[in-house]
C-alpha cells in the first residue's frame, strides 16, 4: 500500500494506534475494579496481537510476553511501566486542583510493517475456538481488527466469516473493524451499506464486519449514533476519539448495573 506520507506523521499514526490500545486496556481494567481490597475482577480474557515490523504475534510485553490470552486481572498487575502526568482535577467546589495521575503503558510503539490480516484472523480463530468451547455460557468474543492498511496476504473475507461463525449461547463472535486511515475522506461510522464507502478496501472491511446485534444497536442509539438493523461493526477513517468511543461502547454491554 502506498502511504501518502511517512516519517514523523507515520510515527504519529502508529502512536495513535498504540495509544488506542493502551487506553482500551486501561478502560477495561478500571471497569473491572470494584473495591480497594479485592483487586481487579477477572471479567474478561484479553489478547493483544500486533502487525509489527517483524511478524504478527502476541504484543504484550514484560511478564505477559508471548501470552495469547491473559485475564484482565493479570493485565492490571503487569503493565510495562506506569507513566505519570499532572492533570487538573475538579476539587468539588467548582475549582481545580493539580493532581499527579498515573497511567499504565502495556504496548509501545513498533514500526509499521506488513498487514498479514488473513493470518491475524486465523490466529484469532485458533485461540477463540477452544475458548468458546470452554466458556459456552459467556458473552461471545469481541474481536477488534485495528488497521491502517490493506491485507498483504490475500482476501481476508473468508477467514473473517469463519471467525464470525464462532458462537456461545449469547450469540456469534463480533468482529469490529476499525480503519485508521491516512487519507482525508469523510469518516463513516457503523454504515449499513457499501454505497457510502470510497474504495474497495473500505468495502472489503465492511463486508468483513459483523452486523451489529440488537442489544448493541440499542446501546449505540442511546449514544446518539445513527444505527439501524443492517449497521455494521465498522468505523472508517474515524479519529482516535471515535475509535475509543467504539471500543468503550462495544465492551460496556457486558457489565450492567
Amino acid at each position: 500500500m502506498n502511504l501518502p506520507f511517512g516519517g514523523a506523521e507515520e510515527a504519529s499514526r502508529a502512536e495513535r494506534l498504540t495509544g488506542a490500545i493502551n487506553r482500551l486496556l486501561q478502560e477495561l481494567v478500571v471497569r473491572c475494579t470494584k473495591s480497594q481490597d479485592e483487586g481487579v475482577r477477572p471479567y474478561f480474557d484479553v489478547g493483544v496481537f500486533g502487525y509489527g515490523s517483524e511478524s504478527f504475534g502476541p504484543a504484550l510485553g514484560g511478564r505477559l510476553e508471548g501470552r495469547d490470552l491473559v485475564s484482565i486481572s493479570e493485565v492490571a498487575e503487569h503493565p510495562l511501566r506506569l507513566a505519570s502526568a499532572i492533570k487538573e482535577m475538579p476539587n468539588g467546589d467548582g475549582g481545580f486542583v493539580e493532581t499527579e495521575i498515573r497511567f499504565p503503558v502495556w504496548f509501545e510503539l513498533d514500526a509499521l510493517g506488513k498487514t498479514p490480516m488473513c493470518e491475524a484472523l486465523r490466529t484469532a480463530q485458533t485461540i477463540l475456538e477452544p475458548w468458546t468451547q470452554q466458556h459456552p455460557e459467556s458473552f461471545p468474543p469481541l474481536v477488534f481488527n485495528i488497521t491502517d492498511g490493506e491485507a498483504t496476504d490475500g482476501d481476508p473475507r473468508e477467514p473473517a466469516e469463519a471467525l464470525r461463525a464462532l458462537e456461545t449461547v449469547d450469540g456469534n463472535a463480533l468482529l469490529f473493524n476499525v480503519h485508521i486511515s491516512s487519507n482525508t475522506d469523510e469518516p463513516v461510522l457503523y454504515p449499513d451499506a457499501v454505497d457510502a464507502l470510497p474504495d474497495d478496501f473500505a468495502r472489503q472491511l465492511f463486508e468483513m464486519s459483523s452486523v451489529l446485534p440488537p442489544n448493541f444497536q440499542d446501546k449505540f442509539q442511546e449514544e446518539d449514533f445513527a444505527v439501524g438493523a443492517e449497521s455494521r461493526a465498522f468505523v472508517f477513517n474515524a479519529g482516535i476519539f471515535d475509535v475509543i468511543q467504539c471500543l468503550d461502547i462495544g465492551t460496556q454491554l457486558k457489565l450492567k448495573r
Binding site: Q26, V29, V30, T33, S35, Q36, G39, V40, A76, E77, L82, M89, T99, I101, R102, F103, P104
Partner: peptide
C-alpha cells in the same frame, strides 16, 4: 491504592 483503584476512586 494500585493505579486502577486510584483511578476508579477518583474518576
Amino acid at each position: 491504592l494500585p493505579w486502577y483503584a486510584e483511578q476508579k476512586a477518583r474518576e
